[in-house]
Write a protein that binds this DNA or RNA. Structure first.
Ligand SMILES: [Zn+2]
Ligand SMILES: [Zn+2]
Ligand SMILES: [Zn+2]
Ligand SMILES: [Zn+2]
Lengths: 383, 383
DNA sequence: ATGGACATGTCCAT
DNA sequence: ATGGACATGTCCAT
């Protein structure tokens, strides 16, 4: 164990003997790093490690060499102990992207501003984000990590914590997590005080069980305005496509704001940004009044508008869950009932009431074909 | 023990044999009542007790008879198991009052509105309140209890809880208490879910150590606007002068609001009240839209300006409703109900049934926002 | 759902 | 400290 680490430390030039990296060692190194926040057991600080492995860490190397060199993936794990990176990384073989698709239904629960690369979303409301990437290496086990950070350079290191008010409502693995992902097998990582990438709160979603057109079903459980929490600071979402070794294969970032009036706030935000870069921010310990308050992402803002709005096409899939198979029904034209209800409890009551309507009719008419609808209703009620 | 209680229960007429009351028995009864929220050990409900002791509970009897009759104070402990009373009680021998004195210094930390009988104060800022009373019985051990309640009749039973955000900062005996009193030997009483007088959170200050001109040094540790806490409901402060047996010798009430801008809010409040009694409140589970939202104290609002400075009539004590609906209308996630039905006729019936579900809920909860869903349903039903 | 009014905390210049 | 502007949640009528 120590031996393998020693061999790592001895690396000091780009003439790396790549054969020496087998995935076993990498895994080991990776876990070594993450289980021990300060690397004390290795008696080496993370900076030293970064210095020694730094040449592997260039953004230019995310591609895999193993096909050419017939070796395992080039390790690129220094980011684990660094601050999150807010630059998109999509110009490699994986062509990773995350896309929002406007949904016809209750579209008001979120709105996206292309000019700001920012999504405005209500609290506890689903935001579906669709992964898009080329499966460049079919053997890689893929994950998408979703993480929240403060947008401003000064606040980036600061952990983004859920406010005590909203914390109170939840227990369990995501009690401290603002960002929830309701896809099955999502894993909640990090801790509330984590500063570097691997320690920050995030949700890790295995792609293994995600259908090709299935979105990440995200939910924000705290508002940007919450005092004792995000406290009106501006925030960003970072998605990273990762393999089983935590190599980063792609990255997609966007600003977000969890608020009560997405439309109003989006319009005001676009308006304000259009005119002049204002102050009146409590972000960062920046200069009194002149500071331009620039986001890390905005470094490339020249191309940002494009980046956003083109990220285009692709088919919206949105298979409606719970869609019924078409039953060839007798003479009567089958009809769909589709309504909006205030909450799940009332939806449940509504379903029960409809159940009674159908059951009553079936009883009165003796039309046992209606049983099909009861069964379908029961499925929804059971959920 | 049981015997002494039995003797109490046997009282059934005002011809009370006052000699039978010694302070020992009263103390015992009092502690019996308070240690056992439901009086289970006595196998008697508090209502029965009130019925039996009710004749002692008249507001007209707070005076002591012991000088005349040479017996201990007339017991008056039924209030312990009732909702707090919001009427001033100063027209007796004790002439109890609590007074604010404008301080030259940092006067901005609070402001008092005479016309509203309301003090506007900043969070975590000292509010000195000066007790004034005639020491009618020099042998009595005196206390002043300070308690916070919701002003509106509907919300009065609801415990006033500190929001989780502000709770987080404190530990110890006043962790849950919004109202702090920094005088030495202040004792924190009650519990967060207490509904009746003796169980509600309060601070009890022994007068023994208070110099004659010394004020109660109060501090509010949570704002009226705090969600998860007072949640913008209007609130009142109740001071009661009590003896060592918890008899109430005097009472002084005032509205208060803990806010960031006392001056602005005071002016706006006075302005608004001057014109017309408005709605736009989240207080009480009141009727849909017409409810006048009246404070207990405001029942006499016609004379309130006077009342403040005099001390009025009489008024009923609100009884404890078994439950009070929680109006807390946080943002519920809207949901869509989508089902397939055999034909239009049944769809119509289904819509009717759902309509009834929502209408019923709206009626029960008084949540008029649900009307939107009824309207939408009606559109579909009309088709 | 939606837009307007409002309530109320925060920032900022003086 | 103070008043004005602003940010942002909530209520309400449609
Ligand atoms: Zn929150
Ligand atoms: Zn940006
Ligand atoms: Zn609070
Ligand atoms: Zn009043």
């Amino acid at each position: 164990m120590v031996e393998s680490q020693d061999s790592l430390y001895s690396l000091s030039s780009p003439d790396l003997d790549l054969d020496r990296f087998d995935t076993g060692e990498l895994n080991l190194l990776s876990s070594q790093l993450s289980q021990n926040g300060e690397l004390k057991s290795l008696e080496i600080d993370s900076q030293t490690l970064v210095n020694n492995l730094g040449f592997l860490a260039q953004e230019e190397y995310p591609q895999y060499f193993h096909e050419i060199l017939e070796i395992p993936p080039l390790p690129n794990l220094d980011h684990l102990r660094q601050l999150p990176n807010l630059e998109d990384m999509s110009e490699n073989n994986w062509k990773f992207d995350m896309q929002l698709k406007s949904e016809s239904g209750n579209k008001s629960s979120w709105l996206y501003s292309g000019s700001l690369n920012k999504v405005f979303v209500k609290i506890n409301t689903p935001l579906n984000v669709y992964p898009a990437f080329v499966r460049y290496d079919v053997n890689a086990e893929l994950f998408i990590r979703a993480m929240i950070v403060y947008s401003s350079q000064n606040d980036l290191p600061e952990p983004v914590k859920k406010c005590p008010n909203h914390k109170e409502k939840y227990t369990g693995c995501f009690a401290d997590h603002i960002l929830r992902c309701d896809n099955t097998e999502s894993v909640y990582r990090g801790n509330e005080n984590g500063k570097v990438f691997e320690e920050k709160l995030a949700v890790l979603v295995p792609m293994k069980n995600i259908a090709s057109n299935e979105p990440l079903k995200l939910t924000f459980t705290c508002q940007n305005s919450c005092s004792g929490g995000m406290n009106r600071k501006s925030t960003s979402l970072i998605f990273t496509l990762e393999d089983q070794y935590q190599n980063i294969l792609g990255r997609k970032c966007m600003h977000f704001k969890v608020c009560s009036c997405p439309r109003r706030d989006k319009e005001k935000d676009e308006q304000t940004t259009k005119t002049l870069p204002k102050k009146r921010k409590i972000e960062g310990s920046n200069a009194p009044s002149t500071s331009k308050k620039q986001h890390l992402m905005q470094k490339q803002d020249s191309t940002e508008t494009l980046m956003m709005d083109q990220s285009p096409v692709e088919s919206p899939i949105a298979t409606i869950p719970g869609t019924f198979m078409n039953i060839k029904q007798e003479q009567d034209a089958q009809v769909e009932l589709k309504i909006l209800l205030p909450n799940d409890a009332l939806k449940k009551k509504a379903l029960d009431a409809v159940y009674n309507v159908i059951a009553g009719e079936m009883s009165r008419s003796g039309n046992s074909a209606l049983n099909y609808y009861l069964t379908e209703l029961q499925k929804q009620i059971g959920k």
